[in-house]
Design a protein around this nucleic acid. Structure first.
Length: 780
DNA sequence: CAGTGAGCGAGCTTCCGCTTGACTT
């Protein structure tokens, strides 16, 4: 038995550290937090000065039991949880649960998993910092209060059925998406004309090459036309040439947030996919910890990288760099995300290979020299007017870090002003041959909708959320139905070009696609209604600066300048009053909007949230006649739907005619468009439009589904209403609405199972229901 | 699975931040 028990948060970390420490140490993991607030009554005794009631959740009982046993057997327990607020709290909870005295138990910290860092940490133990623990308790309790006080208000005032929620992080995330959508809806695009000239000159090999020059200012159509007219018969002369050196520097090594952004831009991964793959890389020992806000690299890693760059690319390419975090809220308990062995330029595993290579390149590039460029700017005069054209060229003199890595940009900071290529050699007073001069119509664009990754970037800038919560936060707002991730089809738009060629002016119309977006975040009507409601009644919590403000308070608690209960009290008293006032006074929020009058009936047409989501209605409930209702399409919104679009929605359900003597009707239901025939339902795929589908198109869908069902069915026991079916996870048993899993062996002979056997399997599973993990708990 | 759109008011949901496997139809 080892004399010392050392506890860290992550099991993968425990394994690595154990190797560094030798036989005197047994290293175990707490698997994160081991206690949490009880759910009943918020887990807080408001009247006893906000005293928290902690419990050990069911999924942590096993770990705690094991740690307790090991504690008894060990001479000394060392707490080596992460060096941040949460890590400090985990150490304190461990003391409480394992019966250790926090003022005596050895607490050690390290920011990097290297032998020297860990041995050094063991030589310099301290004790648990109770101020930091209190800051964490304040954070935890405030989040619980905000979430558990506001969510029930939403159940009462908006809807009970979809378990609505509100929270310090998620509600602000939804607000960002909601406000961006409204900005886009309100945006009025304007257009102007951009001047572009294509000239011709000789390059150093005396070959004739084309290059582009641009006018300095956008013009109206009239101005552009008169400018082009005035250029007829002009000569074009180079009046000035400037050559300037320029450089580009590599980006800092990856944090969780920047990794998510680049994996999204370069590999098209969702935030959760990136984290899943990064977790795999971490567990297999290929990269350092993937949930970090630090851009720091360990000294040993920096040395290894330097050696590798020297060997691979030569001394000229090396430049050691220490990066500083721009983000004030960073807690930097870990290193940046980097390969553990820099000499592994790639890995074999197909799933994680691309992400690994991205991390490898970014890490290597971060310690390489600047790229050196030469920028050339030539000014060109026009003999017939006073305008001036500018041609820009860029030559890469030394590639430096660009040899391995180029950071991508989001579309919102993309710069479409002239992709700069090479310029032929030019001299002052040189006359240029004009190929053509164009004025191209360009339109202003609204800010783009958020992607998962750009939302994470924004949240991080605001100091909202942590590396471990970015991906779960996005899942939450999607799951609650506040936000949807989807594509938007672009629209064709005309744009005009004025072209001057051979002194002849032509007007051309061309078409371009605009507004196409992929995998963007859209607020749902529910998200908009909830956001408006929260903004009206809980404006302080919804403020973009709220987290930053309370983080200052938490810092003061951590520095021992403030008592945590005081901070909570100052927040809670007015907040609770807001909650009560809202419950008393707030109207039920429906997001109602009047669209106009139905010509046929003369009644009002309204769009609003109904019990089952956004809908339109003709007439009102108090009218003599019952109103007619229709559900909005998934891409429509209460805020933007027009009267005409609303009236189209009432065209369903449609009766298509008879098939096998039964009516075929088409409608849009809970799960999208479907055909109903003979009391059975058939989903319509995207290629069919429920408003225009014909009887002839619908009958093959019915027939195909019948065949597919036959193939899926292995066995039917009519009398008992039991079926043996084939699913994506292999054969299983279905009785009524319940499914029963088969063992591997049973699956193999699924088609031969007898009714007795099947009944026995069902009985056994009913007697010993499979355990559902806490995380996968589902409503039944 | 698929119709509804209001209201009896049962019973129940909900937060953020730390960590992994167990589980899925």
């Amino acid at each position: 038995m080892a004399k010392n028990l050392l506890i860290v948060e992550s099991p993968a970390k425990a394994k690595t550290i154990e190797k560094f420490l030798g036989a005197d140490f047994e290293v175990k993991s707490s698997y994160g937090h081991i206690r949490d607030l009880e759910k009943d009554d918020m887990g807080i005794d408001i009247k006893k000065n906000y005293a928290p009631r902690y419990i050990i959740p069911a999924d942590k009982q096993k770990v705690v039991k094991e740690l307790k046993q090991l504690t008894k057997k060990s001479d000394e327990v060392w707490l080596a949880t992460d060096e941040d607020r949460e890590g400090e709290a985990i150490s304190w909870h461990l003391c409480e649960v394992l019966g250790l005295d926090p003022s005596k138990t050895k607490r050690i910290v390290f920011h990097e998993i290297t032998k020297s860092a860990i041995q050094n940490a063991v030589k310099n133990p301290r004790t648990v910092d109770m101020n930091l623990v209190d800051a964490q308790q304040a954070r935890r309790i405030l989040d619980r209060i905000v979430g558990f006080e506001i969510s029930p208000v939403l159940w009462r005032k908006i809807s009970m059925r979809n378990s609505l929620s509100a929270g310090r992080v998620q509600s602000v995330a939804v607000r960002l998406i909601a406000e961006r959508e409204r900005e886009i809806n309100a945006f009025v695009s304007s257009s102007s004309f951009k001047i572009e000239a294509i000239f011709n000159a000789e390059d150093i090999n005396k070959r004739s090459v084309n290059f582009k020059a641009e006018g300095s200012r956008r013009k109206t159509e009239e101005d552009a036309e008169s400018f082009l007219q005035s250029c007829k018969g002009a000569t074009y002369t180079v009046t000035d040439i400037q050559v300037k050196p320029a450089k580009k520097s590599p980006a800092a090594p990856f944090t969780t947030s920047t990794l998510q952004q680049e994996a999204s831009r370069k590999l098209g991964y969702s935030v959760s996919k990136t984290m899943l793959l990064a977790q795999k890389l971490y567990e297999s020992g290929n990269i350092t910890y993937m949930r970090t806000d630090s851009v720091n690299l360990s000294d040993t890693a920096m040395q290894d990288i330097e050696l590798h760059v020297k060997k691979q690319y030569g001394d000229k390419y090396v430049q050691q760099r220490k990066y500083k975090n721009k983000n004030e809220s960073a807690q930097e308990a870990h290193e940046a995300i980097r390969p553990t062995y820099i000499e592994n330029t790639t890995i074999e595993d197909a799933d994680t290979k691309r992400l690994y290579e991205l991390i490898w390149k970014r890490t290597i590039a971060s310690q390489m020299s600047d790229a050196e460029l030469e920028k050339t700017i030539a000014k060109i005069s026009i003999s017939t007017n006073k305008e001036e054209l500018t041609a820009q060229g860029e030559v890469l003199k030394f590639d430096g870090f660009l040899k391995v890595y180029i950071e991508d940009k989001d579309d919102d900071d993309a710069n479409d002003e002239g992709a700069e290529g090479m310029l032929p050699p030019l001299s002052i007073n040189q006359t240029l041959k004009l190929n053509e001069l164009k004025a191209i119509e360009r339109f202003t664009r609204p800010a783009p909708r958020y992607t998962e990754a750009s939302l994470v970037k924004k949240l991080e800038e605001l100091g909202i959320g942590r590396p471990s919560t970015y991906a779960p936060t996005i899942s939450t707002v999607l799951k609650r139905g506040y936000v949807e991730k989807r594509d938007k089809e672009g629209m064709l738009r005309d744009y005009r070009i004025l072209l001057l060629k051979n002194d002849e002016l032509k007007k051309i119309k061309e078409k371009e696609t605009t507004g196409a977006e992929r995998a963007k975040l859209f607020p749902t009507d529910l998200g908009l209604v909830v956001t408006d409601f929260l903004k009206e009644y809980f404006s302080d919590v919804m403020d973009y600066g709220f987290t930053a403000k309370i983080e200052e308070e938490f810092d003061e608690i951590a520095n021992g300048k403030k008592e945590w209960t005081k901070t909570i009290d100052v927040f809670y008293k007015p907040f609770k009053a807001d909650v009560e006032k809202t419950l008393e006074t707030a109207e039920r929020a429906k997001g109602e909007r009047e669209l106009g009058i139905d010509k046929a009936s003369g009644k009002k047409v309204l769009a609003r949230m109904g019990r089952y989501g956004p809908m339109v209605q003709i007439g009102e409930v108090n009218d003599d006649e019952k109103p007619r209702f229709a559900k909005l399409k998934s891409t429509q919104s209460i805020e933007t739907i027009t009267l005409e679009e609303a009236m189209d929605l009432f065209k369903l359900p449609r009766n298509l005619g008879k098939f096998e003597d039964e009516d075929v009707t088409v409608n849009i239901g809970r799960f999208g468009p479907f055909i109903a025939h003979d009391k059975k339902f058939y989903s319509l795929s995207k290629e069919y439009d429920p408003y225009s589908i014909t009887l002839e198109e619908s009958t093959p869908i019915i027939e195909e589904k019948r065949i597919a069902k036959d193939e899926r069915t292995l066995k039917v026991f009519e009398k008992e209403k039991i079926q043996v079916l084939k699913g994506p996870y292999g054969p299983y048993i279905k009785q009524g609405l319940r499914n029963y899993k088969l063992t591997k062996e049973q699956q193999e002979r699924a088609a031969e199972l007898s009714i007795e056997e099947v009944k026995k399997i069902i009985e056994e599973i009913k007697a010993n229901p499979p355990k559902k993990s806490a995380r996968n708990k589902r409503k039944t």
